[in-house]
Amino acid sequence: MSYLEAGIITILCIISAPLFDGIMRKWRARIHSRMGPPIYQTYIDLFKLFGKEDITRSPLAVLYISCIASATFVLALQGDLISFIYLLTASSVCLVLYSLLMGNPFAAAGGAREVMMFVIVEPVMAAAFLSYAIKAGSFIISHLIVWSGVNISTIFAIVAMFLAMQAQMGKLPFDLAEAEQELIGGVFLEASGSTLALFKWGLALRQFLIAYLIAFVFIPWPMVSGALLFLYTLIKTFIIIILAVTAEALFPRLRIDQALGFYARVLIAASFMAIAFSTLGV
């Protein structure tokens, strides 16, 4: 895929991420028996926030959204897997650094939870990738897609990826770093104005990206190319996002020890199995 195409897809993703966030909010509201805001509400929110006073202005917010946007670019380019994972993790690091720099105990507690979560959730995702990479014999995303075919290790990898998705998106029952009722927004507590807008936009993009990733790399069927591929991927992304919100509405928030225990089990039961089976070639 050419740089130009990848660039266009990235920009489209960045622009449409708030729309998907709006769809999530609407769907969640319907499950709650509420009317919910209109699906373009997130755009209005972002517009409003950019006009508000920014008290804790920080370059980390720009860095945060840039990391995620770059990861989107790498994915659209079907480029190097390692740099994709690095960029995604770097965005979490930005968030943690920002929260720890604020000197607010709630933000710090949120940051600590974010660290604990990504230490255990990143391996789940990385292992799922690895099982695909072993089969493809390559770390280039385009090779992974060409290589995937349904077998035992693929199923394990997809299951692991779906379970990691909820935490990667920062959604219930794993929205521990934000945990409004416990930490008043945790990592984002001190952010306001454009800083908060960038974080919110970045998070929306990240949620979109995770769903897009699953749709694009892990479930690449039906195999098509060009604009049709982008369209199909968007439809699959949409379905995955609906699934994520439904799951979010069905669970209360877990405690950090329960969440870590859950992912430790996922790591052993799904991710390691996926690697083991792909090493065996099935």
């Binding site: 709650h32 029952p173 009722q181 669970f251 209360p252």
Partner: peptide
């Protein structure tokens, strides 16, 4: 109580 635990679906249903 559901709201405190982040269980907003049941929160809304109980109030309904």
């Amino acid at each position: 109580a559901c709201h405190i635990l982040g269980f907003d679906t049941l929160f809304m249903q109980f109030w309904r």
